[in-house]
Protein backbone atom coordinates (compact mmCIF):
# COMPACT_ATOMS: atom_id res chain seq x y z
CA UNK A 1 0.00 0.00 0.00
CA UNK A 2 2.86 2.34 0.89
CA UNK A 3 4.60 1.79 -2.43
CA UNK A 4 1.32 2.52 -4.27
CA UNK A 5 1.02 5.76 -2.29
CA UNK A 6 4.58 6.71 -3.14
CA UNK A 7 3.95 5.93 -6.82
CA UNK A 8 0.82 8.07 -6.75
CA UNK A 9 2.47 11.07 -5.13
CA UNK A 10 5.51 10.87 -7.42
CA UNK A 11 3.30 10.75 -10.48
CA UNK A 12 1.05 13.51 -9.15
CA UNK A 13 4.02 15.85 -8.65
CA UNK A 14 5.48 15.02 -12.07
CA UNK A 15 2.09 15.54 -13.74
CA UNK A 16 1.50 18.92 -12.14
CA UNK A 17 5.04 20.16 -12.80
CA UNK A 18 5.07 19.09 -16.44
CA UNK A 19 1.54 20.43 -17.00
CA UNK A 20 2.67 23.78 -15.59
CA UNK A 21 5.72 23.63 -17.85
CA UNK A 22 3.44 23.18 -20.87
CA UNK A 23 1.83 26.57 -20.27
CA UNK A 24 4.86 28.39 -18.78
CA UNK A 25 7.83 27.43 -20.98
CA UNK A 26 9.00 30.02 -23.49
CA UNK A 27 9.95 27.44 -26.13
CA UNK A 28 6.85 25.86 -27.69
CA UNK A 29 8.78 22.76 -28.74
CA UNK A 30 9.94 22.07 -25.18
CA UNK A 31 6.37 22.66 -24.02
CA UNK A 32 5.24 19.94 -26.43
CA UNK A 33 7.84 17.54 -25.01
CA UNK A 34 6.52 18.30 -21.50
CA UNK A 35 3.03 17.55 -22.82
CA UNK A 36 4.26 14.10 -23.93
CA UNK A 37 5.67 13.54 -20.42
CA UNK A 38 2.30 14.53 -18.94
CA UNK A 39 0.50 12.04 -21.20
CA UNK A 40 2.85 9.20 -20.18
CA UNK A 41 2.46 9.93 -16.46
CA UNK A 42 -1.32 10.11 -16.82
CA UNK A 43 -1.13 6.62 -18.37
CA UNK A 44 0.69 5.56 -15.19
CA UNK A 45 -2.11 7.09 -13.11
CA UNK A 46 -4.60 5.01 -15.13
CA UNK A 47 -2.63 1.87 -14.23
CA UNK A 48 -2.88 2.87 -10.55
CA UNK A 49 -6.65 3.14 -11.02
CA UNK A 50 -6.67 -0.42 -12.49
CA UNK A 51 -7.61 0.85 -15.94
CA UNK A 52 -4.89 -0.97 -17.84
CA UNK A 53 -6.73 -0.95 -21.19
CA UNK A 54 -7.18 2.80 -20.93
CA UNK A 55 -3.50 3.22 -20.08
CA UNK A 56 -2.51 1.42 -23.29
CA UNK A 57 -4.99 3.51 -25.29
CA UNK A 58 -3.55 6.64 -23.69
CA UNK A 59 0.00 5.71 -24.67
CA UNK A 60 -1.02 4.74 -28.21
CA UNK A 61 -3.28 7.67 -29.03
CA UNK A 62 -2.06 10.55 -26.86
CA UNK A 63 1.65 9.87 -26.46
CA UNK A 64 1.83 8.30 -29.92
CA UNK A 65 -0.49 9.98 -32.37
CA UNK A 66 -1.58 13.30 -30.89
CA UNK A 67 1.84 14.41 -29.68
CA UNK A 68 3.40 13.57 -33.07
CA UNK A 69 0.71 15.67 -34.76
CA UNK A 70 1.40 18.58 -32.39
CA UNK A 71 5.16 18.37 -32.89
CA UNK A 72 4.67 18.29 -36.67
CA UNK A 73 2.46 21.37 -36.48
CA UNK A 74 5.08 23.18 -34.34
CA UNK A 75 7.81 22.31 -36.83
CA UNK A 76 5.71 23.51 -39.77
CA UNK A 77 4.70 26.81 -38.18
CA UNK A 78 7.68 27.58 -36.01
CA UNK A 79 8.18 31.22 -35.15
CA UNK A 80 11.57 31.12 -33.48
CA UNK A 81 11.93 34.74 -32.45
CA UNK A 82 8.36 35.05 -31.20
CA UNK A 83 8.52 32.71 -28.22
CA UNK A 84 5.32 31.97 -26.33
CA UNK A 85 3.87 35.27 -25.10
CA UNK A 86 0.65 35.80 -23.19
CA UNK A 87 -2.25 37.86 -24.45
CA UNK A 88 -3.86 40.65 -22.46
CA UNK A 89 -6.14 38.23 -20.55
CA UNK A 90 -3.24 36.81 -18.54
CA UNK A 91 -4.19 38.06 -15.07
CA UNK A 92 -7.97 37.61 -15.45
CA UNK A 93 -7.28 34.06 -16.67
CA UNK A 94 -5.00 33.43 -13.68
CA UNK A 95 -7.68 34.65 -11.26
CA UNK A 96 -10.36 32.61 -13.02
CA UNK A 97 -8.25 29.44 -12.94
CA UNK A 98 -7.44 29.94 -9.24
CA UNK A 99 -11.13 30.47 -8.42
CA UNK A 100 -12.06 27.33 -10.37
CA UNK A 101 -9.40 25.32 -8.55
CA UNK A 102 -10.62 26.59 -5.18
CA UNK A 103 -14.20 25.68 -6.08
CA UNK A 104 -13.18 22.18 -7.24
CA UNK A 105 -11.16 21.52 -4.08
CA UNK A 106 -13.99 22.76 -1.88
CA UNK A 107 -16.59 20.59 -3.62
CA UNK A 108 -14.35 17.51 -3.60
CA UNK A 109 -13.67 17.84 0.12
CA UNK A 110 -17.22 18.70 1.16
CA UNK A 111 -19.02 16.06 -0.90
CA UNK A 112 -19.94 12.79 0.79
CA UNK A 113 -18.79 10.41 -1.93
CA UNK A 114 -20.73 7.15 -2.13
CA UNK A 115 -17.56 5.08 -2.06
CA UNK A 116 -17.28 1.42 -2.99
CA UNK A 117 -15.11 0.38 -0.07
CA UNK A 118 -17.20 1.86 2.70
CA UNK A 119 -20.73 1.11 1.60
CA UNK A 120 -21.34 -1.58 -0.94
CA UNK A 121 -25.02 -2.27 -0.36
CA UNK A 122 -25.83 -0.71 3.01
CA UNK A 123 -27.92 -3.10 5.08
CA UNK A 124 -27.10 -6.19 3.05
CA UNK A 125 -26.27 -9.53 4.68
CA UNK A 126 -22.52 -9.97 5.13
CA UNK A 127 -22.24 -12.81 2.61
CA UNK A 128 -23.79 -10.54 -0.06
CA UNK A 129 -21.25 -7.85 0.78
CA UNK A 130 -18.42 -10.37 0.53
CA UNK A 131 -19.67 -11.77 -2.77
CA UNK A 132 -20.14 -8.28 -4.16
CA UNK A 133 -16.64 -7.29 -3.11
CA UNK A 134 -15.33 -10.37 -4.89
CA UNK A 135 -17.30 -9.37 -7.99
CA UNK A 136 -15.90 -5.83 -7.86
CA UNK A 137 -12.41 -7.23 -7.46
CA UNK A 138 -12.96 -9.53 -10.45
CA UNK A 139 -14.17 -6.67 -12.63
CA UNK A 140 -11.18 -4.50 -11.77
CA UNK A 141 -8.65 -7.32 -12.10
CA UNK A 142 -9.49 -7.70 -15.82
CA UNK A 143 -11.33 -4.72 -17.21
CA UNK A 144 -10.93 -5.26 -20.95
CA UNK A 145 -13.76 -7.79 -21.54
CA UNK A 146 -16.12 -5.71 -19.39
CA UNK A 147 -15.26 -2.58 -21.39
CA UNK A 148 -15.84 -4.53 -24.60
CA UNK A 149 -19.26 -5.66 -23.39
CA UNK A 150 -20.17 -2.11 -22.37
CA UNK A 151 -18.92 -0.55 -25.61
CA UNK A 152 -20.54 -3.03 -27.97
CA UNK A 153 -23.80 -3.56 -26.10
CA UNK A 154 -24.85 -0.69 -23.86
CA UNK A 155 -22.96 2.09 -25.64
CA UNK A 156 -23.18 0.76 -29.20
CA UNK A 157 -24.88 3.87 -30.57
CA UNK A 158 -22.23 6.33 -29.30
CA UNK A 159 -19.61 3.84 -30.50
CA UNK A 160 -20.96 3.99 -34.07
CA UNK A 161 -21.41 7.75 -33.90
CA UNK A 162 -17.75 8.04 -32.87
CA UNK A 163 -16.69 6.27 -36.07
CA UNK A 164 -18.79 8.68 -38.13
CA UNK A 165 -17.18 11.57 -36.21
CA UNK A 166 -13.69 10.26 -37.01
CA UNK A 167 -14.62 9.94 -40.70
CA UNK A 168 -15.93 13.52 -40.72
CA UNK A 169 -12.75 14.71 -38.96
CA UNK A 170 -10.54 12.98 -41.57
CA UNK A 171 -12.50 14.55 -44.44
CA UNK A 172 -12.50 17.97 -42.76
CA UNK A 173 -8.75 17.89 -42.08
CA UNK A 174 -8.04 16.84 -45.67
CA UNK A 175 -10.25 19.65 -47.02
CA UNK A 176 -8.59 22.19 -44.71
CA UNK A 177 -4.96 21.50 -45.55
CA UNK A 178 -5.40 20.79 -49.27
CA UNK A 179 -3.20 22.94 -51.50
CA UNK A 180 -4.97 25.62 -53.54
CA UNK A 181 -8.56 26.78 -53.44
CA UNK A 182 -11.20 24.17 -54.13
Amino acid sequence: MLSLDMAFWTMAVVTVVSAAAVVLLKDVFRAALCLVLTFMVVAGLFVLLSAEFLAVVQVLIYAGAISILIIFAIMLTRDVHQGNPSNRFRYPALVLAALLLAAIVLVVIKTDWNQLDSRVLPGAPTEAVGATETGVKNVFSNTTPVIARLLLRDFVLPFEVASVLLLAAILGALALVREGEG
Binding site: V16, I70, T77, P85, N87, L101
Partner: peptide, 26 residues
Protein backbone atom coordinates in the same frame (compact mmCIF):
# COMPACT_ATOMS: atom_id res chain seq x y z
CA UNK B 1 -8.74 19.84 -10.75
CA UNK B 2 -5.19 21.21 -10.63
CA UNK B 3 -4.41 19.97 -14.14
CA UNK B 4 -7.73 21.30 -15.43
CA UNK B 5 -7.03 24.74 -13.94
CA UNK B 6 -3.53 24.84 -15.46
CA UNK B 7 -5.02 23.88 -18.82
CA UNK B 8 -7.73 26.52 -18.54
CA UNK B 9 -5.19 29.20 -17.67
CA UNK B 10 -3.10 28.25 -20.70
CA UNK B 11 -6.08 28.08 -23.03
CA UNK B 12 -7.30 31.53 -21.99
CA UNK B 13 -4.03 33.41 -21.71
CA UNK B 14 -1.71 32.30 -24.53
CA UNK B 15 -1.22 33.87 -27.94
CA UNK B 16 0.21 30.84 -29.72
CA UNK B 17 -2.55 28.66 -31.21
CA UNK B 18 -0.59 25.46 -30.66
CA UNK B 19 -0.10 26.25 -26.96
CA UNK B 20 -3.85 26.81 -26.70
CA UNK B 21 -4.46 23.41 -28.32
CA UNK B 22 -1.97 21.74 -25.95
CA UNK B 23 -3.74 23.36 -22.97
CA UNK B 24 -7.04 21.97 -24.23
CA UNK B 25 -5.42 18.52 -24.35
CA UNK B 26 -4.37 19.00 -20.70
Amino acid sequence: GIIFSIGMYGALSKKNVITVLMSIEL
